[in-house]
């Protein structure tokens, strides 16, 4: 563990709390892509199958359980508790275009041909593009509630902070995980446009609005 990864994990944790807080205080999941959230459930469930086989630390195990549980809870909030506020008609990104290619990539690039390793690889690739339905929705509506942008910024910062973690691990342990690094770079890259608007508008106190 190093400071970058720890801050990344905290940022990830914060993003989930911000999202749940937004849904509960506004009593609405308006502006949140159900598809992105559903993909996250798939990401966490497929990645953390190692909960049954590998024990790393209490920290590691609790975080994994928290990410699975909280992502399922968010789906519950969206599909049951605040269902009327969820508008599928603007959440139109075709998720199958993400899952298909990621499944192919996972079959080609993995660290061993076992069910858990291929699913782990799939989860890494899927996570890197999971935000696309959400960003697509943002693009379509052209604006977002400020709290939603804080959620996205924290979520984007999580993988961005893993990049210095990987550099650090390379120099301190000689450890390289090419699958995670490649996917992590792609994932962070997808946020660059968003980060630009977030830093130049939202953090200056303006509303998040995309140019028409």
């Amino acid at each position: 563990m190093n400071i970058f990864r720890f801050l990344g994990d905290l940022s990830h944790l914060a993003s989930i709390f911000i999202l749940i807080h937004k849904i509960q205080t506004t009593r609405s999941c308006r502006g949140i892509s159900f598809k992105t959230q559903a993909v996250y459930v798939a990401v966490f469930v497929t990645r953390y199958l190692d909960l049954f086989t590998t024990f790393v630390s209490v920290y590691n195990t609790s975080m994994k359980i928290f990410f699975i549980a909280s992502s399922c809870y968010i789906l519950y909030l969206m599909k049951v508790r605040f269902r009327p506020t969820n508008d599928p008609s603007i959440d139109t990104f075709r998720v199958e275009y993400l899952v298909g290619p990621c499944a192919v990539l996972a079959l080609i690039f993995n660290y061993g041909y076992s069910v858990t390793e291929v699913l782990w690889s799939l989860s890494i690739f899927l996570e890197s593009v999971a935000i696309l339905p959400q960003l697509f929705m943002l693009q379509r509506t052209g604006e977002a509630e400020t709290i939603t942008t804080h959620y996205l910024a924290a979520l984007g910062a999580y993988r961005a902070l893993y990049i210095p973690n990987w550099i650090y691990r390379y120099f301190s342990e000689g450890y390289v995980d090419p699958i995670s690094v490649t996917a992590g770079l792609v994932q962070t890259g997808l946020y660059l446009d968003f980060f630009y608007v977030y830093f130049t508008k939202v953090l200056q106190g303006q509303k998040f609005e995309l140019p028409a």
Binding site: T54, V56, N60, F67, N165, R169
Partner: peptide
Amino acid sequence: EEVPGHHDEL
């Protein structure tokens, strides 16, 4: 037993 790197990252 050594834990492979990708199991300790989240």
